[in-house]
Design a protein around this nucleic acid. Structure first.
Lengths: 155, 155
DNA sequence: AACGTTGTTTTGACTCATTCCAGAATAGGT
DNA sequence: ACCTATTCTGGAATGAGTCAAAACAACGTT
């Protein structure tokens, strides 16, 4: 939340061969504080953090970080692209059809048996798989009670 | 591919309480012939089939059919929304990061253990899950050979 | 078979997320 | 401190998808 260059984020950037800039660190801090944010939310948080920043800068940073595997882009149907700091674990996402909230879910069965690459070989020979993305769709707890059609961004 | 009202599609529409129109049947035929098409491809196929149709009509039809559960919308990040006729089985999708091709994959482990709703209860109490969507990301066979950056739509 | 209701389609403009462009500014290695 | 690659700015463009109102068509009713 604070502005100062957090060394962990700076190191991550350097490790991936990216220059350390205020904006990049601010974007990473924003995502650390508000995972699953859309670009607009990231922009608002970055501006609150480091002042004047163009929206293009935020898109560029998000794309650069996504390319380097530092952040993860998720794009549920009917929603703007959401971003989160990529963590090594095998977690997936729960998305509310009504309000769009995104919640993290650990893959309940550790090894994620149905996601094993070898199972796919027979169906799609030659396909080199690098990731399995799981989105669970449904209605979140607040929305089952509420009759309103809110559109919050974070749980 | 032919224009005539295919009774199966018409029946499906009636079953779900939708009126049977040329446009709707044509959209269903288009999806039957070219699964995982985007709206633009559907539009082109529908026009080739029944002549002049507005793009809005195609969007309306796709939304109506999606709402009624007749078609399934999939929206891999970085791609336009794709549509397929919804079939009862538990299949998922393989998406090529380079060219965007979408291929069907049966869930290798029949019961899809890691997708069981009860596993999610502890993480997100009150969340009513209705569907698990799995996207396998990677590079398809042709793209591993080709150095070009094509953008085909169907395998 | 004609009618009227109501759901669909047409038309055309419009929104909004995201990207492109080109010039100005900046970070980091030397 | 300088130099050069890289990033940032601001504005304009792109393009998928939506909105609104008028024209039209499906289908149950008479």
């Amino acid at each position: 939340m604070t502005s100062s260059l957090r060394p962990d984020h700076a190191d991550t950037l350097r490790d991936r061969g990216l220059r350390v800039t205020r904006q990049r660190v601010a974007v990473m801090s924003a995502l650390a504080g508000a995972p699953h944010s859309g670009a607009d939310t990231v922009l608002a948080r970055v501006r609150a953090d480091v002042g004047r920043v163009s929206h293009q800068a935020v898109y560029d940073v998000l794309n650069a970080l996504t390319d380097k595997g530092i952040v993860n882009r998720i794009q549920p149907a009917g929603s703007v692209a959401r971003y989160e700091l990529r963590v090594g674990d095998n977690h997936h996402h729960l998305v509310c059809r009504r309000c769009g909230v995104v919640t993290d879910v650990d893959c309940a069965v550790g090894a994620a048996p149905c996601l094993e690459p070898q199972d796919l070989r027979v169906h799609a020979p030659g396909f080199v798989l690098d990731e399995a993305e799981v989105i669970y769709w449904g209605i979140c707890d607040p929305c089952t009670h509420d009759s309103r059609n809110t559109d919050q961004e974070e749980a």
